[in-house]
């Protein structure tokens, strides 16, 4: 005789709609982790999310909690206003690297500097996924993209920006950590880190951001496994995984 017990399944904070992201896309993994954390913290009824402009603009189709869109790059200030109106709610914004590090650089810097007590999930996939894989401020030196056909040449395109290190200098910033989600171990670690970023908000610690090195297999022209190898290799060489700032 035997009995059966479900020990892992789709979190209830996800809707039944399958993700429409490409195969192996980092957005899918992070969406799932956020939903798992929302379940575990029991905050589905008190969390409000802000979706970016980018592939994850569709996040609101997949999370079964309140979500608003925001204009390209403006998610942190939309989140700021929501948090100020509802200080008791958990408010987060979710942004890609074009959204956060390019068009929305002023928004993230000032939100960080004001030390808004929100959580930011920053998806660094080193390109503009939605619009077809153009160069992002985060693209690596030499990276071939649809607008850097000969690779990122620093003379013409400048250097890749390490946003988390940049934000670390602001006193309003309490917690910054960079993670990857390339295998089960790193996914478990990433979940812990993202959970901490939400707990920080709930405990009133202040501005917390998690940068996730995420894959964009479709635009990298690689399969999901090769994409993860690229993150484990050259991407995490430039963007080192780990705690960048943690003010206790």
């Amino acid at each position: 005789m035997s009995t059966e017990k479900t020990i892992y399944k789709k979190p209830t904070s996800l809707t039944d709609r399958p993700f429409t992201y490409c195969w192996g896309c980092g957005h899918s993994t992070i969406h799932k982790l956020i939903a798992e954390i929302v379940d575990e913290l029991g905050i589905r009824e008190t969390i409000i999310g802000v979706a970016p402009v980018g592939c994850a603009v569709f996040a609101y189709d997949f999370w079964n909690f309140d979500v608003t869109e925001a204009a390209h790059g403006r998610a942190p200030v939309v989140a700021t206003a929501i948090k100020r109106v509802h200080p008791g709610k958990t408010v987060f914004c979710y942004q890609g690297d074009g959204d956060l590090a390019s068009i929305g650089m002023a928004e993230i810097i000032h939100t960080a500097n004001r030390g808004e007590n929100i959580t930011v999930i920053f998806i660094n996939n080193t390109n503009y996924g939605m619009t077809g894989g153009q160069l992002a401020p985060t693209s690596l030196i030499g990276q071939v993209t649809t607008t850097s056909p000969n690779g990122r040449d620093v003379k013409n395109y400048g250097y890749p920006i390490r946003v988390s290190e940049l934000l670390a200098q602001f006193e309003g910033v309490k917690y910054l950590e960079r993670v990857k989600v390339t295998d089960a171990v790193s996914v478990i670690k990433a979940k812990k880190v993202i959970k901490k970023a939400f707990m920080n908000q709930i405990n009133g610690v202040g501005f917390s951001m998690v940068e996730v090195l995420a894959s964009c297999p479709a635009n990298w022209r690689k399969d999901p496994i090769e994409s993860n190898e690229m993150i484990d290799g050259e991407i995490s060489k430039y963007y080192q995984v780990g705690v960048i700032k943690d003010v206790k």
Partner: peptide
């Protein structure tokens, strides 16, 4: 062996893992 690693890595939350517990 019900390690759940497949479920954890699955980006799409497509895998449910069930542990089979022998009772007798």
């Amino acid at each position: 062996n019900a390690c759940t690693l497949c479920g954890i890595i699955c980006p799409d939350a497509a895998i449910e893992v069930i542990e089979i517990i022998e009772t007798e």
